[in-house]
C-alpha cells in the first residue's frame, strides 16, 4: 500500500472526473501503461481505476472515474463526497493489460474505457509505432479527453459518437487490419464481445470493467491445503475460495470479487485450478474470488 493526497478533482466530461493524487512524502511506485490501482475510499470500499496520467510523473497519479447511475457506492462516493486534501490508501500498480511491443497498434476505447488507452497510445506513438485510436461514446460531451486526444494526435484519433452514427463497424476495421498489428480494446461488455467476435484472438488484448457472462459446471465442495501453515481449508459448494480462506483466518486481500481486478491472486503449488476470471491467470497462480478447483484438492502457498 502507498498513501497519496487528493490534490485536485477535475471535471473532464459529463459524469466523469479526474482525480490527481500526489504521493504522501515521496515518489509513488512506477507503473507501465495499462496498469490500474486499488483506491481505498473513506466509505471503506475499494475500487480499481486505470492510471491515465504520465508514467514519467512519479509525484502524482491520475485516475478518471465515471459516475455509474447504478453505483454500489464507489463512483457515487468519488463524485459526490470525496474532498480534496484527503489522504487515501492506494495499492501498488498492477498491470493485467500490458502493452506488448509491436510495429502497429489499433486501440479501441468505449466511454470510460479510454483511461488505460491514453497512456498506451502515448507510449506507442513515442516508440515510433503506427498507432490509431477509435474512441466510441454517446456524444463528445460524455467522452473524457476527446478534444485533447484529437489535438495531440490529429487524424490518428477517430471519435465515433453513437448518438449520431450508431455502432461502429468493427468488421470493417478487422478487414483492413494489418495482420501484424495488435488490437487493444477497453470498454463496455457489448463492445468487447463484438471485438472478440471479429478480431483474431492472437492479435486482440481486452480489459473488461465487469466480468463476461460465462457458463460453468455446477460448483462442488473441495479442499485447499495451505502448505506453508500446514492447514487444510474446506471450500463449500456455495462459497468462494477467498471467503473460505478469509474465514479460516488467512488475510487474502480482495478488490472487485468478480475476477477482473487481480487483487486476490494466490500462488498455487498443487492440484488443478478451474480458472473463472477475466484476467488470465499466469501458471502457478489463481484469482481466488471466482476461480475454483477441477481436482478434489488444491495446494496453495499460504
Amino acid at each position: 500500500m502507498q498513501r497519496a493526497v487528493l490534490e485536485r478533482v477535475e471535471p473532464v466530461a459529463e459524469g466523469a472526473v479526474s482525480l490527481v493524487l500526489r504521493g504522501d512524502g515521496g515518489p509513488l511506485a512506477a507503473w507501465e501503461p495499462g496498469a490500474h490501482v486499488d483506491l481505498v475510499l473513506p466509505n471503506w470500499l475499494t475500487r480499481q481505476y486505470s492510471l491515465c496520467g504520465d508514467p514519467a510523473d512519479r509525484d502524482s497519479y491520475r485516475v478518471t472515474v465515471h459516475h455509474d447511475p447504478l453505483s454500489r457506492g464507489g463512483s457515487e462516493y468519488v463524485h459526490l463526497y470525496l474532498r480534496t486534501g484527503r489522504t487515501l490508501e492506494i495499492s501498488l500498480p498492477r498491470n493485467n493489460f500490458p502493452l506488448s511491443p509491436a510495429a502497429e497498434y489499433l486501440f479501441i476505447a468505449g466511454g470510460i474505457g479510454i483511461t488505460p488507452i491514453v497512456p498506451m497510445l502515448a507510449s506507442a506513438v513515442e516508440a515510433g509505432a503506427v498507432a490509431r485510436l477509435v474512441y466510441v461514446g454517446r456524444s463528445t460531451a460524455t467522452m473524457p479527453f476527446a478534444d485533447e486526444l484529437r489535438a495531440t494526435y490529429g487524424d490518428r484519433v477517430r471519435i465515433h459518437t453513437t448518438d449520431e452514427h450508431g455502432r461502429p463497424d468493427f468488421a470493417a476495421l478487422a478487414a483492413t487490419l494489418n495482420p501484424l498489428a495488435l488490437v487493444y480494446c477497453c470498454g463496455p461488455a457489448s463492445m468487447i464481445d463484438t471485438a472478440e467476435a471479429v478480431f483474431p484472438p492472437s492479435r486482440l488484448r481486452v480489459e473488461r470493467f465487469r466480468p463476461a457472462a460465462k457458463q460453468f459446471a455446477l460448483n462442488s465442495a473441495f479442499l485447499v491445503d495451505c502448505v506453508r501453515s500446514g492447514r487444510t481449508v474446506e471450500v463449500g459448494a456455495e462459497q468462494s475460495v477467498l471467503d473460505a480462506l478469509n474465514h479460516a483466518g488467512f488475510p487474502v486481500p480482495s478488490g472487485c470479487r468478480e475476477g477482473v481486478c487481480g487483487s486476490c491472486e494466490i500462488p498455487v503449488v498443487g492440484g488443478e485450478p478451474e480458472h473463472r476470471d477475466d484476467i488470465g491467470a499466469p501458471p502457478g497462480r489463481m484469482y481466488c474470488c471466482v476461480s475454483r478447483a477441477l481436482s478434489p484438492r488444491l495446494a496453495v502457498d499460504l
Binding site: L70, S71, R72, G73, S240, D243, R257, E258, C289
Partner: peptide
C-alpha cells in the same frame, strides 16, 4: 438491488 451488491 443492483446498487446494493456487497462482496459479490
Amino acid at each position: 438491488l443492483a446498487r446494493m451488491r456487497t462482496e459479490g
